[in-house]
Amino acid sequence: MSEGLICNNISKKYKDKEVLHGINLTLERGKIYGMIGRNGAGKTTLLSIMSAQNPQTVGTVTLDGETVWENRKILDHICFSREIIPSAGSGTLGAMKIKDYLKAAEIYYPNWDKELADKLMQEFQLNKKDKLGKISKGMLSMVTIIVALASKAEFTFLDEPTSGLDVVMREYFYRLLLEEYEKTNRTFLISTHIIEEAANIFEETLIIRNGELLLKENTQDLVERAFHISGKAEDVDAATEGLTRHHEEIIGRGKSVTVLLEAGESIREGYDVMIQPVSLQNLFVALCGIGEA
């Protein structure tokens, strides 16, 4: 039996358009995963398929070998706290009070921690009688965070939980997340566009590009094999000969490239070039920026 949450060759088509192409992915227990990808890369679709809120066109999703789709027993262990869009369903969600939204979550998730939900409501200074359609984007994010944390699901997915939150709240969210992770060792998969802040939280990073899983790797290991090389164009070319060059930029006689070294590869020595480390955010731009595949 295969342990963990496994996507086997997942593809998804909306009408004629294929948005996910043959994704293979294993989430092990007890890790915080980060998922980054540009708008429209397929992140939300993948999360909704992994939590059986949306059927895949091809492939299987299993938890410890058991299929996830329409499997109540398995779904008790998976929470995908979606972004709340108050206008969805011709506004029915917008007319719902926060307390009713949380009540629905309480009924849905068997391990619901009401005490934690109440505590977070207070700490976020939310008013339970407010309607979802009347609160700010940041407050909607807080509600999705409460659902995710209080669900106590073994596998919990958050889709851009920090969107609309101010910098203080974003930092507070990551501390809450680490605290919960420390206590329970639950598995979290979190998508975000604010990469710089989150990079240190993620044990592993997944990069989704154009409906494909470009890579999944320990975040520190990944950043360690990325380098920014700059100098005179011919020196940069010579130093990186045979390597895949990303994000080439030429200014006059100067040139800069980003490389991601594979096992056995190295930057050639003996050339007058600057070699600098690269942050996860810069690496992401180099791999997924405009003009890259």
Binding site: K31, I32, E171, Y174, R175, L178, E179, Y181, E182, N200, I201, F202, E203, T219, Q220
Partner: peptide
């Protein structure tokens, strides 16, 4: 490890390393 993780908002596995 957990104190470091909380103080710096980093993954405990990284702090442990």
């Amino acid at each position: 490890t957990n104190e470091l993780a909380r103080q710096y908002a980093i993954n405990p596995a990284t702090a442990a390393k």
